[in-house]
């Protein structure tokens, strides 16, 4: 029980990564696979932020005087995740446009059916 309350965020991140990986590996619909990528991404962001957390810490912003620098959460993972999120959306848009083009070309986005077809 103690383990569960301590590791709530880790469990969330772990589940998201596993569910995203399951969708990517098992599903045959291309749009579903891209949704899986998005969930997988979210899991990794949550994991990185959780690693940088400090119990009863404050956000790394000196918005008022008297904040203790020793009780602040780690800013480095936050900076990494911040840029990763914005790049993620651009790469996702590229994947989506490729899926739309595949649908226009083959008339289906089912990966198994695409494999059976000739050019």
């Amino acid at each position: 029980m103690n383990f569960l309350s301590e590791y709530t965020y880790y469990i969330g991140a772990f589940s998201l990564i596993i569910i995203g990986l399951y969708i990517i590996l098992v599903k045959k619909n291309l749009m579903k696979v891209i949704i899986g990528f998005s969930i997988f991404d979210t899991g990794i962001y949550l994991f990185l932020i959780t690693v940088g957390y400090l119990r009863e810490g404050t956000a790394p912003v000196f918005s008022k005087s008297g904040l203790d620098a020793g009780k602040m959460v780690d800013p480095v993972p936050q900076a990494l995740v911040l840029t990763a999120i914005v790049i993620g959306v651009a790469v996702l848009a590229l994947a989506v446009i490729l899926a739309i083009k595949i649908y226009a070309h083959y008339g289906t986005i089912n990966l198994r059916k695409i494999k059976e077809q000739r050019w």
Binding site: Y7, Y9, A13, G52
Partner: peptide
């Protein structure tokens, strides 16, 4: 593999961090 590595990482414990210099 993921579970074994995650269970080794303590949650919210203070320690050596990359961002200490940046914060101070």
């Amino acid at each position: 593999g993921l579970f074994m590595s995650i269970s080794q990482i303590p949650f919210g414990e203070p320690g050596e961090r990359m961002g200490d210099h940046f914060i101070r």
